Simulated scan of single mutants.
Amino acid sequence: MDPLDVWPFPALRVTSGDLELRYLDDDLLLQAALLAADGVHAADAMPFTVPWTRGTPAEVATSVLRYQWSRRAELSPERWVLELAVLRGGELVGLQGAQATEFRVTRQAETGSWLGLRFQGQGIGTRMRRLILHLLFEGLGAERATTTAFADNARSNGVTRRVGYRENGRDVLPREGAAAESIRYVLTRDAWAADPDRPEVALDGVAAVRRHLGVPD
């Protein structure tokens, strides 16, 4: 039996120019953990609902490993979290993920991501979001993509609006012991297709991933 028949994700590639999304195998996962340990945001900021970036560098790296290993173990057609390494010119710069519950029914997925601090402000965030959206809409047949960001996370909100999402409500969430406003966004298939700046994207290994996730053709 071909190992990819059992676990097809290592063959998945989403590529545009020098940027690539690739399955997070153990080698890339260790690189991602060490990158996160070097810093993901300023010390006085917290862009995440779960403050996994707090702690010593070793604690942050360990948190990344444990989280990612747990997501692999729980991946199923009913509920999945697909985390992909973001590589620019072959160098790992961050992670881009998508998650869904009963995607084969709802055709809706939520995106989330992070970049190493030293790679921020270079336009990579916008590019990697467009790549994961191409995978969701073109590769997996999504009808809607959602995302959230705290109101004070200017870069994340900027990327989200730039690629065509519309605001879909606001919530007040606890963040490190204080209330913080979080913005919900939604992007429809039609809005994604109308984006004039969508790049040329190559998809590889998607058909087997669809079958594994129970998504009909």
Rank of each mutant, 00 (worst) to 15 (best):
T106K: 01
T53E: 06
G139M: 01
T111K: 01
G141H: 08
N153L: 02
V163S: 11
Q122R: 14
R66M: 10
M46E: 15
G116M: 04
V163N: 07
G121W: 08
T126A: 09
I124P: 00
G125T: 09
T101Y: 00
L82I: 15
G116V: 07
R54Q: 13
W114Y: 12
A109P: 00
T147F: 05
T126L: 14
P47F: 10
V159G: 01
T62D: 15
L75E: 02
T146M: 09
F48V: 08
M46K: 00
G169H: 06
Q99Y: 05
V86E: 04
R161C: 06
S113D: 05
E143V: 08
Q96H: 03
T53L: 08
A149V: 10
S113I: 09
R54N: 02
P47K: 04
V64G: 01
V60N: 00
A154W: 12
E138V: 14
G121C: 11
S113A: 14
G121F: 09
G164K: 04
Y67A: 08
G141R: 03
T49N: 04
W80C: 10
G123M: 05
Q122K: 02
L136D: 02
G94L: 08
T148Q: 12
L140I: 13
E138N: 11
W52G: 03
F103Y: 10
T160S: 10
L95D: 10
T111M: 04
V93T: 12
G141D: 05
E143R: 13
Q96S: 12
F150M: 03
L135W: 04
V81I: 13
E167Y: 06
F103H: 02
V93S: 10
G164N: 02
R127Q: 15
Q96E: 14
E91K: 02
G112C: 01
A58V: 13
Q68C: 13
R72L: 13
R88V: 15
V81M: 09
P47G: 13
A61R: 09
Q99K: 14
A109L: 12
Q96T: 08
R166L: 07
R166K: 01
V60P: 00
E74H: 04
Q120W: 08
L87R: 10
F137I: 12
S113F: 04
N168T: 09
T49E: 12
N157C: 15
T101G: 04
A145Y: 05
R66V: 14
E59P: 03
A98P: 00
T147L: 11
E102N: 13
T56S: 14
F48I: 11
Q96C: 10
A151R: 07
S63A: 15
R54D: 14
Y67L: 10
R166S: 12
W69K: 11
W69Y: 13
P77T: 11
T148R: 06
E143W: 09
T148K: 02
A151I: 09
T147G: 05
F137N: 03
R155A: 15
L133P: 05
P57L: 11
A145S: 15
E74A: 15
V60E: 03
I132L: 12
V159E: 07
L95V: 15
G55K: 03
P77I: 13
A145D: 02
E110A: 04
